[in-house]
Design a protein around this nucleic acid. Structure first.
Lengths: 238, 238
DNA sequence: GACACCAATTTGGGATACCAAGTTGGTATC
DNA sequence: GATACCAACTTGGTATCCCAAATTGGTGTC
């Protein structure tokens, strides 16, 4: 017996109706990325079902998608929120660098550089008063949008996927004001090189930025591993 | 009422029991990659259900997975086997090149080059008497296994994903004996450079090989587009 | 106290029933 | 014959039920 009319079941965001599956997927993803469910925590389909007032069919569809995003993984017969894996983070950073550098080289060769302005505006929308959460989001979007300028959907997808997988770790990273400022400056420098069409320089700047970013990330997490574990987060180094 | 015992439901391959979902996914993937179901064909969950004697739960799980692999895509409310998209193929080729070149540079920097022998042996297992299907498989595996030497799982996954998406197109490509021989020789040359630890040369050879390969692929499909359409295959250039 | 053993519960995999929206084919009307 | 209209069917989305396997918790034995 289904007593729920569509108007009740469907979640509406920005005027667009979402299916139950999309709704569950979205909410669950936000909970995982927002660390409301910690890395390493067990998930049961039944819990999700009751938590989001959906039946198991959309729940399972959402789980399958989140698994391909790497946010959850199978744990024997059940599901687990993916632990923070330092080795994996390093590998993703290498992958990301290859893809982003390829993208920026393509972009530098393009005639129309006007889209760079939009990214620059995005960067400039952050200032000292901006919430850390917003800095975090802009820091991710910068790389995704930069890749998008290449016009290659697969490069964009790869960058987005990598950033999603790195997202929780970047959020956990202990970053001071200086680090945020440095990243901001490096992003601007990269854009300047792109605007000038200097592919080698843009690639070099971007690469340097990413290597530094990766090293600080991994070091920060490695140093704070005990603290993270104390918060109930699974952090593995294997 | 479920009358089917596990022994009937479970498909066993190589002594390993597969779930219904895995079985449906695998069979459906093979049918799509083997062009038994042509690009652009509509799929209904009910047809798959009866075709593989499974219920809709595993069918839907399989469809969700194949969607993330890019082999099928949503078509309004239904499912369609992904058409051959020439623009997409070109983008994948660019993506692939970035990833494979990054992987081979890492591999060249490694001390232990013994794994190269295994790939060389794989290449050498093909000769004039080898079936075209086998050439096809080895041609894919060469690139995947070469990436695996880097030790970076994300680079491997990216290459495997790209090769899967290119697979049908490569199978449709009109390739003569000369083309197969050239590819074989180029593969060997790449391995030689890797063994010598010459990253720049290996990257150059691999890159050249892939660019040529991509150009021939796209040209072949573009030229034969009419013939492919006549066989009922959707080929789009958008 | 350690351990083997069994029943109750939990859980994911699968099967099926139901619904709403879309499609289709036929029919009545003009 | 063209068209408006409606009923039957199709189809994906969702809810619910069943099952087997794993987990859990308690109990009796040594």
């Amino acid at each position: 017996m289904n007593l729920n009319p569509v108007a009740v079941n469907a979640t509406v965001i920005n005027g667009t109706a979402m299916s139950q599956m999309q709704s569950v997927e979205r909410q669950l993803r936000e909970m995982i990325l927002g660390l409301e469910i910690g890395p390493g925590e067990r998930l049961t389909e039944r819990w999700i079902e009751s938590r989001f007032a959906a039946s198991r069919t959309p729940v399972r569809a959402a789980l399958l998608r989140l698994e391909t995003e790497g946010l959850i993984c199978r744990d024997g017969r059940g599901w687990t929120v993916s632990p923070i894996n330092l080795t994996e983070l390093e590998q993703i950073a290498v992958y990301r660098e290859a893809v982003e550098v390829a993208a920026i080289r393509i972009t530098c060769a393009l005639e129309d550089k006007s889209a760079v302005d939009l990214i620059e505006a995005m960067l400039d929308s952050c200032d000292a008063a901006t919430a850390r959460e917003e800095w975090h989001r802009v820091g991710m979007d910068f790389h995704i949008e930069l890749a998008r300028l290449s016009g290659n959907d697969f490069l964009v997808r790869a960058v987005r996927d990598a950033m999603t997988r790195l997202s929780r770790a970047r959020w956990l990273e202990v970053r001071d004001e200086a680090a945020l400022g440095r990243a901001w400056a490096e992003h601007h420098a990269v854009l300047a090189a792109v605007r000038a069409g200097d592919a080698d320089e843009a690639a070099r700047l971007l690469s340097t930025h990413m290597v530094g970013s990766r090293d600080r990330l991994v070091t920060s997490l490695r140093d704070d591993r005990r603290g993270l574990r104390a918060r109930g987060f699974a952090v593995v180094a294997a």
